[in-house]
Computed example of a mutant assay.
Amino acid sequence: MVPGADKLAGCPATPSKPPVGNGLPDISLPCLGAGPDIRLADLRGPLVINVWAQWCGPCRDEAPYLATLAKSAKVTMLGIDYDDPRPELAVKFAADEGLTYPHVADQDKAIQKALKVGGPPLTAFVDSSGAIAYVHRGVLTSQNQLNQLVEDKLGITP
């Protein structure tokens, strides 16, 4: 386990589900904290997935909005530490920013093709059927913007 990973939320065990059309890719990624690997295709919403890296300046800018959304408890959240050679710094970043939800590591850019990741940050909104309702590419610029996306794409008022 990465030093300091015990400060992060553990990844939950997820029941196996069949992949859905326009859903998350059938890829398993290791938990950045404690817990089992997460198979993305098993996940259902309402879910907000944020693709980030500790070396990404805009990711640091939007982190407070994600931390605030995580406190609302109306949506499930998952972070994906993307293309990050320093997992120990990723753990420190997530802990320092109060990103209290589970995170997985994608050092090999396994999600790049499926989510068309040009680079972090990227935020995906997954509905209750497991389909990707919307992908926001680039930095979230305000709490209001993030809350509005959750409301518009997932039908939930944070």
Results as ranks from 00 to 15, higher is better:
Pro3His: 12
Pro3Lys: 14
Gly4Pro: 05
Ala5Pro: 06
Ala9Glu: 09
Ala9Pro: 03
Ala13Trp: 05
Thr14Phe: 13
Ser16Pro: 06
Lys17Ala: 15
Pro18Ile: 10
Val20Met: 14
Gly23Asn: 12
Leu24Arg: 01
Pro25Asp: 06
Asp26Glu: 14
Ile27His: 14
Leu40Asn: 07
Leu40Cys: 03
Asp42Val: 12
Leu43Lys: 12
Leu43Ala: 13
Val48Asp: 11
Asn50Gly: 03
Trp52Arg: 00
Pro58His: 05
Cys59Thr: 02
Arg60Gln: 15
Ala63Ser: 05
Thr68Phe: 00
Leu69Met: 08
Ala70Ser: 07
Ala70Cys: 05
Ser72Asp: 11
Leu78Asp: 13
Asp81Lys: 01
Glu88Ser: 04
Glu88Phe: 03
Leu89Met: 07
Ala94Met: 03
Ala94Asp: 02
Pro102Arg: 10
Gln107Lys: 00
Lys113Trp: 14
Lys113Thr: 15
Ala114Ser: 15
Ala114Leu: 13
Lys116Gly: 13
Lys116Arg: 14
Val117Phe: 07
Leu122Pro: 02
Leu122Trp: 03
Ala124Tyr: 04
Val126Asp: 04
Gly130Lys: 03
Tyr134Asn: 12
Val135Gly: 05
His136Asn: 07
Leu140Thr: 11
Leu140Ser: 10
Gln143Ile: 02
Asn144Ser: 15
Gln145Thr: 09
Gln145Asp: 10
Asn147Met: 00
Asp152Ile: 09
Gly155Tyr: 15
Ile156Met: 04
Thr157Phe: 01
Thr157Trp: 00
